[in-house]
């Protein structure tokens, strides 16, 4: 799964997690975790660095599979044509 950096950079993202894609006109909302992943992807961070940032930013219970969660999030981005 390869996020499209140019398309991600163009996204208008509000602090509340509302996202507008100016290319397609689509809008969607993300929760706090999704927001953190989107911002990390916009910065061009690798999967490992995104997982590390999530570990640092959120209280975890220990049994999460963060790499899988990020991967699933990218699948959702593909649905929005924001990843290939």
């Amino acid at each position: 799964m390869n996020p499209d950096p140019a398309r991600l950079r163009d996204l208008a993202i509000s602090d509340s997690g509302f996202v507008f894609d100016p290319f397609t006109g689509y809008t969607f909302t993300v929760n706090a975790t999704g927001l953190a992943i989107l911002q990390a992807l916009k910065e061009g961070l690798s999967l490992d660095l995104i997982v590390r940032r999530l570990q640092d930013s959120f209280e975890l219970e220990g049994d999460e599979d963060l790499a899988r969660d990020v991967d699933e999030f990218c699948v959702r981005l593909r649905d929005q044509k924001l990843a290939r």
């Binding site: 163009d10 507008f20 100016p22 290319f23 397609t24 006109g25 689509y26 809008t27």
Partner: peptide
């Protein structure tokens, strides 16, 4: 892009796109 349509398929809301 139209965001909502009437039952006749006419745009009831829309947003400018780039």
């Amino acid at each position: 892009r139209k965001m909502a349509l009437t039952d006749k398929g006419k745009g009831w809301s829309g947003v400018t796109v780039d």
